[in-house]
Amino acid sequence: MTDTLLEIDNLSVDYETGRGDLQALRDITFNVNKGEIVGIVGESGCGKSTLISSILRLTAPNTRFREGEIRFKGQDLLQVSERHMRDLRGADISIVFQDPMQTHNPVLTIGQQMLDIQHRSKQSKADKRAHATKMLGAVGIPDPEARLKQYPHEFSGGMRQRIAIAMALMSEPDLLIADEPTTALDATLEVQIIERLQELQREFHCAILFISHHLGVIAELCDRVVVMYAGAVVESGDVREIFHDPKHPYTRRLIECDPGHLKERARVLPTIPGEVPDLANLPGGCIFRDRCDQALARCATEVPPLDQLKEGHHAACWLNHEEATS
């Protein structure tokens, strides 16, 4: 397909540790198309961060790429030279991090940082400055010209996160990775950031890979959703399919657990009993089996494949397997 921007194909990543190899990602497969917003949702330890750092190839020294490919515009990012990777980072693929309070250099003005980030551009300093002003305005910072002279501490958290977004979009990247960009912000600011991202996405036509554990935000912003659990993709599909017709028990439980779902006051909130399995010592069969209330005998021994249930909707669960193959 010509409109595919990023293809993650069978990606498996290990961390070498004293306890043996920790299988942080196993057989991750999904695509991001041009101009699409894809959400990755999953709880702590599901491999979201490993996935992002793998795409940017900014991994810890004990990381081992065991298998698979990460193709960006057709080229495998795991094979290209470090030099080439440097050219892609920030220019074609850029990122907004979780904590807006620590993203900026506290001793440089925002303007200086926005000029520095354009170091690749051949434009004059005045043009770069004008570009910085325009981008600040685009993310809704009032009086951008004057604000360029200010330091990060003179901005609120929400503004700093919007500035981080402005900086990430300055080079008009094809792919913007947003790593829990609203987690550190309160609800009103969260909404501001989501709406801003939607507008900018329409304006710049970049694809967004949006990582979050907040289901409300995912539901509102994304076109497609990838659900991860313990280092594997358990379900992926159109945002409506995932929220209205989840096919993997984990996805179902996760959605049930969100208190935003319950309109009436509940005495006992739903939870998912049990713990995430130890990635250094994985159980056989389905990784969610121990916490699943619908597990079959087969789930203990065989790993369920990520089956296509219908066009664009995949789930890795034996419960759906019969349906899919028959």
Binding site: A187, V191, A219, F243, H244, G260, H261
Partner: peptide, 8 residues
Amino acid sequence: ANPEPDPD
């Protein structure tokens, strides 16, 4: 401003 876990 509370985002709801429902795309619709």
